[in-house]
Amino acid sequence: MNLQMEMEHHRQVLIVRFIGELDHHTADQVRMKLDEAIHSQQTNHIVLSLKDLQFMDSSGIGVILGRYKLIKSKGGKMAVCDATPPVFRLLEMSGLFKIMPIYESESDALSSLEVVS
């Protein structure tokens, strides 16, 4: 099983859609692609769109936290949206919502990030 990532820029906000499974095996490609995107001039904030993420474990938490630290060090923000119930539960258990907001949809996340930027 693989993971696909779709990336789309809305002004300074990068939307990343995950399709497939995010585990230890697929975490490396996520790390590389997102680090590259974060270091580009275009990206101030990131929205992780999780509707089609069919599986995630603690390796996914690790890679999300790592990118969160990176974007935060550049003065940016990160948000997640549209998580399925199992993924939501894992994010909640890991305390992720203490440091970043979750929205119902990409448009909710976008409008909220555009207000703060």
Binding site: A27, R31, D57, S58, S59, I61, G62, V63, L65, G66, L90, M93, S94
Partner: peptide, 10 residues
């Protein structure tokens, strides 16, 4: 390696 340290907890 950016491990979250959540494996056993989960």
């Amino acid at each position: 390696l950016e491990r979250s340290g959540m494996g056993f907890t989960i």
